[in-house]
């Protein structure tokens, strides 16, 4: 590979010479190993997502203080919804920042 990535298997057209050394184009992608994400609240059986519990909420508002999306944290839909209200309430009370300074 010469550091360039092609999208789609049918490629190579118009890019003569660049990707030829690779032999087969439709090679299966190396499988990415990702840790299976589970909802923290389901796994730890936390029923009460409380706005007063900053210790619980802070990991879900990293750096820029934005709410961590579900696709990253793996939180299930129900708990993400509750998390969101809790974070919004905690923000009103200045327990959690709206933005990073």
């Amino acid at each position: 590979m010469n550091g360039r990535r092609t999208f789609g298997g049918g490629g190579g057209r118009g890019r003569a010479g660049q990707n030829q050394q690779q032999g087969k184009d439709g090679q299966p992608r190396r499988p990415m190993f990702r840790r299976r994400k589970v909802c923290k609240f389901c796994a730890d059986k936390i029923d009460d997502i409380n706005y007063k519990d900053t210790r619980l909420l802070l990991p879900f508002v990293p750096e820029r203080a934005k709410i961590l999306p579900r696709r990253i944290s793996g939180t299930c839909a129900m708990h993400q919804r509750k998390l969101r209200t809790a974070i919004m309430r905690a923000r009103q009370l200045a327990l959690i920042p709206f933005t990073a300074e």
Binding site: D44, F60, V61, P62, L68, S73
Partner: peptide, 12 residues
């Protein structure tokens, strides 16, 4: 049982 999945957020 603090979660270590989002370490980077915790020093906030």
């Amino acid at each position: 049982d603090r979660d270590d999945r989002f370490d980077m957020a915790e020093d906030l």
